[in-house]
Design a protein around this nucleic acid. Sequence first.
RNA 1: GGAGAAAUGGCAGAGUGGUCGAAUGCGGCAGUCUUGAAAACUGUUGAGGGUCACACCUCCGGGGGUUCGAAUCCCUCUUUCUCCGCCA
Length: 422
Amino acid sequence: MLQLQRVRDNKDAIIEALKKRNIDADAMLNGVLHLDEKRRALQTELDNTLAESNSLSKEIGNLFKSGKGAEANELKAKTTTLKETSKKLGEDLNNIAEELQNLLYQIPNVPHESVPAGSTDEDNEEIFREGEIPELIEGALPHWELAKKHDIIDFELGVKVTGAGFPVYKGKGARLQRALISYFLDKNTEAGYTEIQVPHLVNEASGYGTGQLPDKEGQMYHIQADDLYLIPTAEVPVTNIFRDDIVKKEELPITYTGYTPCFRREAGSYGAHVRGLNRLHQFDKVEIVRVEQPENSYTALDGMVEHVKNILRELELPYRILRLCGGDLGFTSALTYDFEVFSTAQDRWLEISSVSNFETYQANRLKLRFKDEKGKNQLAHTLNGSSLALPRVLAGILENYQTKDGIQIPEVLVPYCGFDSI
RNA sequence: GGAGAAAUGGCAGAGUGGUCGAAUGCGGCAGUCUUGAAAACUGUUGAGGGUCACACCUCCGGGGGUUCGAAUCCCUCUUUCUCCGCCA
């Protein structure tokens, strides 16, 4: 959620920047300012009414104490109208404040200046590419066929037990999953991130805190009986640890890594692009989350990008990095880099990581602040990234590492797997 | 799931209708003393709105109510603790 003060001070610049998202925010921002003005006027009126009624109450108390009951009762009559007025004003104020909040919720984050304009993923800007795309062996297969051939992932079984998009990993497939999780967590903790295990279900307030609600209501699984949501990413529970928090400046940066399954309804997706592991309702992901001082957040973002690069180098997977264009940028993000690994057998790039700086957008919703050197509370910056998402990494490994003699396991993973080929 | 008790500032903890945004202690910050530090002493120290700055307003787990006036009384929800039941 954008800060009101920022909207007041930089309306035109924000409108201009939001054009990169192909949004004409003019009406919305003017609406915000209009409601804000109304809100402040009402607040002042209410404050004055309450002040008057407070001082009357004090007077009444004093009169009673000095035995002037008659005078006190006279004043009491006056407070009745004040009470009615303040009740009415309070209701109006609540309505306006709610309207203002709802409008603010609808405005996405302001893109960073480096974000290219554009409307679809076609307009994303490739900024880096590394790794050799292997030459395919004859009869190379896409990962879903490899999975079947080696009996390591059973999609049909998942359909039987749950439904489409819930695969069952078996034998070496299951072990490879576990190996990847351990390997990613190890790489992240080596880089200084603290490992953390968090709930896989969150409440509504957490959904609002990181911005999945109300924007992506339909994308999360909702357990109505208890009003809880299955997490779409570890970002939600991990970042919400800091909801309503004021941390000390010395405690920053805060860096966490956690493994969780992720649940996404992915309503409306279909077709060849969602085959196999390409798109699932449940998948595993290891996430990194940072809370930073504003002046450090972009350096931190670059550091996260380097960190993910190193992992992909070690796995020897061909990948590229995209700077997302305004149209493809997530609602809450100011700048996002997507990592894509090349899937040889499918002849396409698969997104495996998304590294973002949310600046104060989430922090403002979360009320996550830190005390600066002047003792003033300031909103922190939040960042997160996948490091990494499992299924498409697995797809990339299966497809890129297939040989005549089976699938080779990347060297760094062999100690984690306990075998070197499938 | 049943019975009882509780929820106050960073922490501990007082406060049972007006003098309470809240005693006291610890912690934090600043100062005195000291070569420096510690100790001791003095001062200061919650959040949000609002204002050029004040004033002023709101917040004592959440929501609602009683009252001229609520941290304090009533209702309700949530959470925690103790006891019982169930259980990986």
